[in-house]
């Protein structure tokens, strides 16, 4: 076990952590702000990747491709919200239905192939695993911009209404807030970010895969929970919204660092999903033991 070999893998982990961190910010909106469990994510992540890759192959710039990834992700979230509000399907079930349907939709977008390559040699990509410095700088910049936008948005009248809906629905209704509208905006935004992250990952790894979203929700939750535990240890006196968002990204990066260490220890990569589940369970438990009372929606 060569330490140098371990360190050489950290820049890749950082890039992946940033990309999945952006996805986790989307999960944060539904899981922590609206306090609903949205499993659309596993589908909309791959939708974003598919949309971005097909756009780039068709000649779009990588930025336009990312915007498309954002918009397609947003539409996925909107469908989940409408199934919930119009057809009265509970959000968890609505999101599972959309996730399932998206597998077919994603294959359609990818014209029937499960995997489509988009090589950095042939196309102009925003980030690529072949240029880690550029990828990491771009990733940091995008993350900063997204956090700034989220921070601003959740301080606006509309953003506050969404927070109130997640916090206390009776209070929200009594103050003229339609919870269905809050969930529509929140789910759309969340999956927009997830799709955006999918578009980034596809460029970074040089291909998109219809099943690349499998387990994305778990990684998102892992990033949130690892971030929260670290936050409460490192800066226990300041729980400002800005810091909470930053620690979601930190959580994503730490998650991939841990993954790199696990791989470096020559653990069978087939066991990786098992370790992911264990890490999430361990951090969840750590958070619960620390707070005694537990996370507000631990019972879901």
């Amino acid at each position: 076990m060569n330490l140098l070999n371990l360190f050489s893998r950290f820049p890749t982990a950082l890039a992946q952590g940033l990309i999945y961190g952006i996805m986790a910010l989307g999960v944060y909106i539904t899981f922590r702000i609206l306090k609903i469990s949205d499993l659309t994510v596993d589908g909309s992540f791959a939708t974003g990747g598919a949309a971005a890759v097909m756009a780039i192959i068709a000649g779009a710039s990588p930025i336009v491709a990312l915007l498309l990834a954002f918009i397609t992700g947003l539409l996925c979230g909107a469908v989940t919200a409408l199934l919930n509000s119009r057809l009265k399907i509970p959000t968890v079930l609505a999101s599972i239905l959309v996730q399932l349907a998206l597998y077919s939709v994603n294959l359609k977008i990818q014209k029937g192939s499960a995997l489509i390559a988009v090589s950095v040699d042939r196309y102009n990509l925003l980030i690529s695993s072949r240029n880690l410095t550029k990828s990491n700088l771009t990733g940091l910049l995008l993350t900063a911009v997204i956090i700034a936008i989220l921070y601003w948005f959740f301080g606006t009248e509309t953003g506050c209404a969404i927070r109130a809906t997640g916090n206390n629905q009776a209070m929200a209704r009594a103050n003229g807030i339609n919870p269905a509208v809050s969930r529509f905006i929140g789910l759309s935004m969340a999956n927009g970010l997830v799709g955006f992250a999918g578009g980034l990952l596809a460029q970074f790894q040089g291909f998109t895969d219809v099943s690349m979203g499998r387990g994305a929700i778990v990684i998102g939750l892992a990033a949130i929970i690892i971030g929260e535990v670290l936050h409460s240890i490192l800066i226990p006196r300041n729980f400002s919204f800005m810091l909470r968002l930053i620690f979601v990204i930190v959580g994503g990066i730490i998650y991939y660092m841990v993954m790199v260490i696990i791989l470096w220890m020559h653990i069978d990569s087939n066991d990786l999903k098992l370790f992911t589940a264990l890490i999430v369970a361990a951090f969840f438990a750590a958070g619960n033991l620390k707070n005694k009372g537990g996370f507000s929606n631990a019972e879901d």
Binding site: F153, G155, T156, E157, T158, G159, C160, A161, R163, A164, N167, N168, A170, M171, A172, A174, N175, G176, I177
Partner: peptide, 27 residues
């Protein structure tokens, strides 16, 4: 009657907008 995780002033600002459109203006 109040959102527990939100500040006193945020709760009041939410109530102040009751019955009006909620925009992207600062809360």
């Amino acid at each position: 009657g109040t959102a527990a995780d939100m500040w006193i002033e945020e709760n009041m600002a939410l109530a102040l907008r009751r019955g009006q459109k909620r925009t992207l203006a600062q809360g």
